[in-house]
Amino acid sequence: MQDFDVKELDRLLQQAFDAATALYQQRGFQRRVGFGKRPALVSVDLANAWTRPGNPFTCDQEKMDNEIIPAMQKLLAAFRANGLPVIHVTTAYEITDRKAPFTDMGLWHDKIPVDVVDLKDKDLCAIDSRIAPVEGEYTLLKKRASAFHGTELAGILRAANVDTILVTGVTACACVRQTICDGIADGFRTIAVKEAIGDRVPGAVAWNLFDIDAKFGDVVGVDDCVTYLNSLKA
């Protein structure tokens, strides 16, 4: 899609958001969930199959290289400096034969090409080296869109007394959104870090962040998130 088309799409989306904001606020939506006392970073699918070119799951490379990765680096520095929990999330499958009578993909392969993230190719599901985990951080392997669905995530967060999750990653319309929806459903304050969320499709990030901010969590800029994290030193 040409730059002109993307700009026009952004303009039309903003026009729609302005109208929807008036409706939402009139009806009591767009309230704030706010930051809590102990946050964790939940970084969703910022692994090579999504962050690097050449894979069906590859996301917008310009945004990835110039916005998402730098924002993640800022967040990681703040989380690490303040000794706060970091969970990196990735997705891969052990049985990738779509004709097999039993697979760890379930029926999802009928919709998307999950067979291209084969667990045997460790590089595909490895977290991007620019934001690679360090000692003391956990990498969680999921099989579904949400990082909570069928995983140990909620349990390990509660064990660490976490009440707030800062969610980053891809994609805005699927895994990030589902993680945020399940996060607030499980009792965590959900914060979507605006500059650290991406997608493959133009407009998907803007629309989903607008809708998340109205109903499921707070969309907050990375600099404000870092300020919050650093305030916890006291």
Score class of each variant (00 low, 15 high):
3 D>G: 01
4 F>E: 14
5 D>R: 03
8 E>A: 13
9 L>H: 14
10 D>A: 12
11 R>I: 07
13 L>Q: 12
15 Q>V: 07
18 D>S: 09
22 A>S: 09
23 L>K: 09
23 L>T: 09
23 L>D: 10
25 Q>L: 14
26 Q>C: 05
28 G>S: 00
29 F>W: 14
30 Q>N: 13
30 Q>K: 12
36 G>K: 04
39 P>S: 07
40 A>S: 09
41 L>E: 04
41 L>S: 03
41 L>T: 03
44 V>D: 05
44 V>C: 04
50 W>N: 05
50 W>D: 08
54 G>I: 08
54 G>D: 04
54 G>W: 07
55 N>W: 14
56 P>Y: 09
56 P>C: 07
58 T>G: 05
59 C>R: 01
59 C>N: 12
61 Q>V: 12
62 E>F: 05
64 M>L: 10
65 D>Q: 14
66 N>W: 03
68 I>G: 05
69 I>M: 05
72 M>H: 07
73 Q>I: 03
74 K>T: 11
74 K>S: 14
77 A>G: 03
77 A>C: 01
81 A>W: 09
81 A>Q: 14
82 N>K: 13
82 N>Y: 08
84 L>T: 05
89 V>G: 02
91 T>I: 15
92 A>F: 13
93 Y>I: 08
94 E>R: 11
96 T>E: 06
99 K>L: 11
100 A>P: 03
101 P>Q: 13
102 F>A: 15
103 T>N: 06
103 T>P: 06
105 M>L: 08
105 M>K: 02
109 H>V: 11
110 D>V: 10
111 K>Y: 15
113 P>Q: 05
113 P>M: 06
113 P>C: 06
114 V>F: 11
114 V>H: 04
115 D>R: 04
115 D>K: 06
118 D>R: 02
119 L>H: 09
119 L>W: 09
123 D>Q: 12
125 C>F: 15
128 D>L: 11
129 S>C: 14
135 E>W: 02
135 E>N: 11
136 G>I: 05
137 E>Q: 01
138 Y>C: 02
142 K>Q: 08
143 K>G: 12
143 K>I: 03
148 F>S: 02
150 G>F: 10
151 T>A: 08
152 E>R: 07
154 A>L: 11
155 G>F: 14
156 I>Q: 09
162 V>L: 05
163 D>M: 03
164 T>R: 12
165 I>L: 12
166 L>D: 10
167 V>I: 14
172 A>I: 04
173 C>R: 11
173 C>L: 12
174 A>T: 15
176 V>T: 02
178 Q>S: 13
178 Q>P: 01
180 I>P: 11
183 G>N: 06
184 I>L: 09
184 I>W: 11
184 I>V: 15
186 D>W: 07
186 D>R: 06
188 F>Y: 08
189 R>I: 07
191 I>Y: 03
193 V>E: 06
193 V>T: 03
196 A>G: 12
197 I>P: 08
201 V>I: 15
204 A>F: 14
205 V>C: 07
207 W>M: 15
211 D>H: 12
212 I>T: 03
213 D>C: 05
215 K>W: 02
217 G>P: 13
217 G>I: 13
218 D>E: 06
218 D>R: 00
222 V>H: 05
224 D>P: 00
227 T>C: 06
227 T>L: 10
230 N>I: 08
230 N>E: 15
231 S>K: 00
234 A>V: 09
